[in-house]
Nucleic acid binder design. Structure first.
Lengths: 190, 190, 190, 190
DNA sequence: TATGAATGAGCCTTCATTCAT
DNA sequence: CATGAATGAAGGCTCATTCAT
């Protein structure tokens, strides 16, 4: 599910790797990316050395984490492509993502991670593709204006997540704020 | 302009205070709030001790910086309230703010500052008031839907800034993304 | 002998812990409790981080040191209780303690440590008990007056150590000064 | 009264000097000699620069303070020499000094000042002379044994002060502890 | 391979002392 | 002379990373 290793690992090593990613997600979600590696190790029930054996650098750990999280998003989007109502699938995706972000700051925290030079643009590729497909279907279904492009949608997506995170949106505020974004994608431009 | 001191200072002290805030803005904009106080001092051309004489704590420096930056935003908004076209003033404000953020990550970096317990909600008060006025006028001018509330607008504002910052919006992308937000505020909801 | 760790440690860690306490005793004895942690590390031949791994705070190090030193005193007193001549054991204890203090200001320096909130009164408990027993035996042997109480004896003990430390008592002066204290405990009051 | 300056001073400078010594006594009594020079200045109602104009070094300030305090003790002792009951004057002096110390840690704090290399032994000279005289008279009056020497008495004095300071002697404990010292000076040795 | 102790650069902050105003 | 801002050397402590066990 989350971020496969580069090469086959012994069963216990693989288990540790998974535990670590889970623990890291928790810890960074709670405390931001400044949380210490020690804390991640503690939460995973291993020693620091183990963290560094699996991820030679804190940045590597963050990268792996992000890769896994992005994959989940892609899977989510793909599922909506496959089974969702074309007219609302994109909006549904937005809503879910923001909901998740509100409760879990990891994705955004990672996007915002200042010290880690993850080639985000590149890593975002697969997610962008999935969103593109959702967008295309929404447009075909007549629910979204034809001129809307994928990069705007991605921009809105990131903005919504960040805004939700640092603004602490309530469910109601979230609904109304996204409502405006959705209306903007539907209606003719100003 | 930016964050007045609590008490009258000698000419040289005042000059240093200003230099410090300027340097801090630069440094934190470039490196995020984790940049060292030492670096701020170096950039300002003073010794560390001087930073701490003016701002007893790093958090105090960040607070002062934020206060000044917010004040600039409020002034900007107030000017638009006084002299702008009611129908577009709010949108104009959005655009300017995002433009500035794209080039200067400080505001956003501060909003996102995790370690600093700035009473952001409180400090945002005056800005919120100014935005509220811009919104009200836009609504009176018939350019913005009546149901749109201030908190959604603030949410969009923060989201736009954050998105622009971490997404690295080009001028074109910025125009289109904000265009969707504006359309959403103008048009009837989905 | 001196201040056991809370939990089992690896051989090398234990060795370092001991080295640290030894170095700390030396350093604080020479320079007082204001000596830097860095200096303690240097003397112990380790890096600062190691000091803080063993003792999260300078105060913790001082506490541990004091605990160990007090334990030595208690052991010393207990030995005199078990094997000493009841009539002179208490005086013997006084003499030994002061002798040691003259050469090693640590105990006193710690007692006087102003910044460290060691619950001295509490920590002194076991020592007080041992002294009490020495006193009782001295009284039973008819060598010390019945009215003398433990707290006076402790007060004299502390005073003697402090006096010896800051006065730099010579062996002869020490003998005569303690002689007066002992005479005071033996003879009827003025 | 307390520590005259080396050369004549302007009226205001003299006033400041006195204020400073008073403030320093207060501050160091409360917080020990580690209290900051800034705090002394604040308490005296002057700027730091003024402190350093009068006392080029913190150590100089402490030295001056001590000189003044010692002078008070000497005056006290001299008064007892002149007007006290020979048989009890020395004991009276002990009691007063310890009483004062219990409430005011300055003298002792200074004696214990680790960083300041005051030639205490030398500075103690006049006090020693006065004590010597008190002792001599006590011995002539038959109240103190002939073999007791001045240095023992000084040693007991310092010990009593230090003990009282760090032990926090209650009035009762003080009486009993000094009682033993006095008995020891009166009675024949063990 | 896992452990967890050791390392050491770097951070924030304090404070005696100097010096421009 | 007084003022109080500036200096800069420490000091305590953290934490990513390395390495002996």
């Amino acid at each position: 599910m989350s971020s496969e290793p580069d090469r086959p690992l012994r069963a216990d090593a693989l288990r540790n790797r998974r535990r670590l990613l889970l623990a890291a997600e928790e810890v960074f979600a709670e405390q931001g990316t400044q949380a210490s590696t020690e804390e991640v190790a503690r939460r995973a029930g291993v020693a620091v050395g183990t963290v560094f054996r699996h991820f030679p650098t804190k940045a590597d750990l963050l990268r792996a984490l992000m890769k896994g999280l992005l994959q989940q998003l892609v899977d989510d989007a793909d599922a909506l492509v496959a089974r969702g109502d074309p007219g609302t699938a994109l909006f549904e995706f937005f809503t879910r993502l923001v909901e998740r972000t509100t409760a879990n700051r990891t994705v955004v925290s990672l996007l915002a991670a200042e010290g880690i030079d993850v080639p985000i643009a590149g890593a975002l590729g697969p997610l962008t593709s999935a969103v593109q497909e959702l967008l295309r279907r929404g447009q075909r279904a007549g629910a979204i204006r034809a001129e809307v492009r994928t990069d705007e949608v991605m921009a809105l997506l990131v903005g919504a997540c960040q805004g939700a995170l640092y603004g602490g949106w309530s469910p109601d505020l979230r609904r109304r704020t996204l409502g405006i974004m959705f209306a903007g994608m539907t209606a003719p431009p100003v």
